[in-house]
Design a protein around this nucleic acid. Structure first.
Lengths: 115, 115
DNA sequence: TCTCCACATCGAAACCCATCTATATGCAGA
DNA sequence: TCTGCATATAGATGGGTTTCGATGTGGAGA
């Protein structure tokens, strides 16, 4: 498959990303790559750190309650938000470090080494 | 639709994100939220700043050439990579500021004001 | 216990996306 | 001009995703 490449050269330093790593990163990004979930995250980010209850998320988004539940599950499975149950209400809040880590992975600037 | 909300309260400071804004951000993120495109970006980021030619991207990704072309188009339409034609070859390179801007938007940490 | 409320899950319908093969385009050399 | 190569586009197909209405679940009050 690669024996014929004599046309152009690639200096390429890094040894390519593994399939596993690429899929993990893509999956995390997919969790955010939806207008409804972007809005959800925005609301959760700009709200109180102890979370927002679902009943306050349904109406302003203009979609049905099961849809909100679905999107919150996606975000939760991606580790981007967390759920706290209190009486009948479920409060959702962002996991700031998870979002920050995702942001760091996207940033092409060479980062300083982390401890 | 909203007159009955008397169950829980939301302090909510920010005035919700506009549909347009949310969709723009989601679309940019969608461009990255794919394993193949993550790998492509990784290669372009870790390669020389003057770009990598398509012929060097096709083989290592294990997908057909039109698929590579398709993904590069997605990334280009999102403004994340740019294309430079030289003779028969097309060289692609990352737009670092675009990626960095996306990373910044994801970061929940309150940023310093930009000029 | 019975009922109500908040939220989650189910199943179906509509839609979008990644991939392929086949083909077009455009440059360069013979 | 004709041929060959690198890349892009077209059209088709299979699979995944978002949305909904209907229903399940579990806590709290009557």
């Amino acid at each position: 498959m690669d024996a014929s490449a004599l046309a152009c050269d690639t200096p390429l330093v890094a040894p390519a990303m593994s399939d596993t790593e690429a899929e993990a990163l893509a999956q995390a990004l997919k969790a955010v790559a939806d207008p409804t979930r972007v809005k959800l995250l925005h609301r959760l980010i700009s709200a109180a750190p102890d979370g927002v209850c679902v009943c306050d998320l349904t109406a302003p988004l203009g979609i049905a309650q099961p849809s909100v539940s679905y999107h919150l599950r996606i975000l939760r499975q991606a580790g981007l938000v967390e759920r706290r149950q209190e009486r009948n209400f479920a409060y959702f809040s962002v996991r700031a470090e998870a979002l920050r880590r995702l942001a760091t992975l996207l940033d092409p600037t060479p980062q300083e080494v982390r401890t």
